[in-house]
Design a protein around this nucleic acid. Sequence first.
DNA 1: CTTATGCTTCCAGTCATAGGAAGGTCAAGC
DNA 2: GCTTGACCTTCCTATGACTGGAAGCATAAG
Lengths: 139, 139
Amino acid sequence: MNIGDAAQLSGLPAKTIRYYEDIGLIEPLRSANGYRSFRETDLHKLTFLGRARSLGFTIDDCRTLLTLYRDRARASADVKHVAQDHLACIDRKIVELTEMRRTLSHLVEACAGDDRPDCPILADLAAVVPGQSCARQSN
Amino acid sequence: MNIGDAAQLSGLPAKTIRYYEDIGLIEPLRSANGYRSFRETDLHKLTFLGRARSLGFTIDDCRTLLTLYRDRARASADVKHVAQDHLACIDRKIVELTEMRRTLSHLVEACAGDDRPDCPILADLAAVVPGQSCARQSN
DNA sequence: CTTATGCTTCCAGTCATAGGAAGGTCAAGC
DNA sequence: GCTTGACCTTCCTATGACTGGAAGCATAAG
């Protein structure tokens, strides 16, 4: 199976698949003509990766999960641990975004949104908040 | 005022401040020795930027907001528009994350988390979902 | 005079790809 | 046999928003 089919079936762009090979997540065979040749197991891994990425796992998480997946003697506790860590991370992000949303929606509501030059949004953004040293984001 | 003080007062790393000058968000003066010299207005802008960034506005949003901020004849409607767009974007992210959280927490709950090799998390990640062509994320 | 801190510029790296150029391969149609 | 077009290859560059580090001045304290 060539990369095009693998892309179609896994739902990942060909570019991404090549990248995943580059960083050692998959190791497809090569045909005589130099084309990548994907086996069932490769496709399986790609689908796994696509799903894990769409759930927000980092590439590094994926590497760990793939190793655990291949390891028949793994403990499910290990996997659960990775997943729980990620869940906690998601929760933090949700809290952060909700906080952001609340602040911003207050500002939007307070803004008349007409032609007058006064704007509470800008006024607030410009206000020097005294103790905001930990307001920075991890992004 | 040198960059160190500006960093301290604005809460932004010096590196970030230099970067902001690089991309034209601020234009501090220069002392005779070549050091950047920050005025009140520069500090004001930096604080503005730090606050806007921590609310999740992109650098491009910040550029727009700074322009609107300097322009005394601006319409608050313009600002409101930028803010509302961003609010919608935040809402989308929250929905996405909540969805993710729900799926993942189901998986975590279903996982025994012991020494047995069976793990529903891995099983689900490996499962080929039939019509998942739009599962990919914008990141 | 030394030491230490602070400032400068410039170059490279991060993450997870995406875009595109230059060129080889393959199947179909004429 | 030849052309066309789709598909594949590698390699290089760009993204966003910084961060890290090296090499080299400037300045203050002891």
